[in-house]
């Protein structure tokens, strides 16, 4: 039984295929990582999996629903949440309000109730506020409970997006390079946070260049290159795949050259560390 099933997915920009005839399945409860060189199509794939882009071909089935051609908000309603590589924080609101927006699907009320500020709504707002604060603590943002979002450092904003995504109560969460721009300590804390997301029963899809993180947390890795599937399997299987190493080096170098060994070695070491 797979939670997400992708068949023959493609996305063309002009004549260029950013994602090309891609098929894969994601099982519930797993940490599924998608890696690949810059421009491989990882972000494009996440945009397809959240309805931000419409596919040029193929099918996306999530939790038994054919989602192909649906709008982003419909993906969210089925239980897919995400963060962005280029932050999409609501900078006109406080940090807490950002997370409260994430609870829109649970909180939304009729227009009349909102306009007349029905008593039930006032109570619900208070509960929403508390819940949002709880989620901020969960991702480690307890110091920013009364912060304006435009006054927060980059690392905190990345976690704010995770809290906002969590607030939608997703079945699956897609993280686009959550470690990018973080200092090493912050990046280390991500391992733990991702573990706690799966602990909540959320299936995590991780796009990331930080191999230490990827090799440490992933149950399954999909390697993309030029929009196509290059390899797929466990961390173990992927890190030894010559095609993968070659792709990361620009396709010119054989895996047993010195440079190749260095990369493969680094990857292997990371895996050992996390056993």
């Amino acid at each position: 039984m797979s939670l997400l099933s992708v068949e023959g997915l493609g996305k063309k920009f002009g004549g260029v295929s950013a994602v090309d005839d891609l098929s894969f399945d994601i099982r519930p409860g797993a940490v599924y990582s998608i890696i690949g060189p810059n421009g491989a199509g990882k972000t494009t794939l996440l945009n397809l999996l959240t309805g931000v882009y419409q596919p040029s071909s193929g099918r996306i089935v999530f939790d038994g629903h054919d989602m192909t051609g649906r709008a982003p908000y419909e993906y969210a309603r089925q239980g897919i949440a995400r963060t962005f590589q280029n932050l999409q924080v609501f900078f006109n609101m406080s940090a807490l309000e950002n997370v409260m927006v994430g609870r829109y699907l649970q909180e939304r009320s009729g227009l009349a109730r909102a306009l007349l500020r029905a008593p039930g709504l006032v109570r619900a707002e208070q509960a929403c506020r508390n819940e949002a604060a709880e989620l901020m603590r969960f991702v480690g943002l307890q110091d920013y409970l009364s912060a304006a979002s435009d006054a927060m450092p980059y690392g905190a904003l990345k976690r704010l997006e995770i809290a906002r995504a969590l607030a939608t109560r997703p079945k699956m969460m897609l993280l686009d390079e959550p470690a990018a721009g973080l200092n090493p300590t912050e990046a280390l804390e991500l391992d733990d946070l991702i573990g706690r997301l799966t602990g909540r029963g959320i299936t995590v899809v991780l796009v990331e260049h930080n191999m230490r993180l990827v090799m440490g947390v992933s149950d399954h890795i999909l390697v993309l290159d030029y929009g196509r599937k290059l390899a797929e399997g466990s961390a173990q299987a992927v890190r030894n795949d010559p095609k993968v190493i070659a792709a990361y080096l620009g396709g010119e170098v054989s895996p047993d050259s010195t440079y190749g060994e260095t990369v493969a070695g680094a990857v292997a070491q990371a895996v050992e560390m996390h056993r």
């Binding site: 959240t50 309805g51 931000v52 709008a71 982003p72 908000y73 993906y75 969210a76 949440a81 995400r82 962005f84 999409q88 924080v89 609501f90 900078f91 006109n92 609101m93 309000e97 409260m100 927006v101 994430g102 609870r103 829109y104 699907l105 909180e107 939304r108 009320s109 227009l111 109730r113 909102a114 306009l115 500020r117 709504l121 707002e125 929403c128 906002r164 995504a165 607030a167 939608t168």
Partner: peptide
């Protein structure tokens, strides 16, 4: 209200609002 927050959110980032 949640509707008002939605309005302010889409002002700042339409895609950010849609995905929640």
């Amino acid at each position: 209200s949640p509707t008002g927050r939605a309005l302010r959110a889409l002002h700042s980032s339409e895609v950010g609002a849609e995905v929640v």
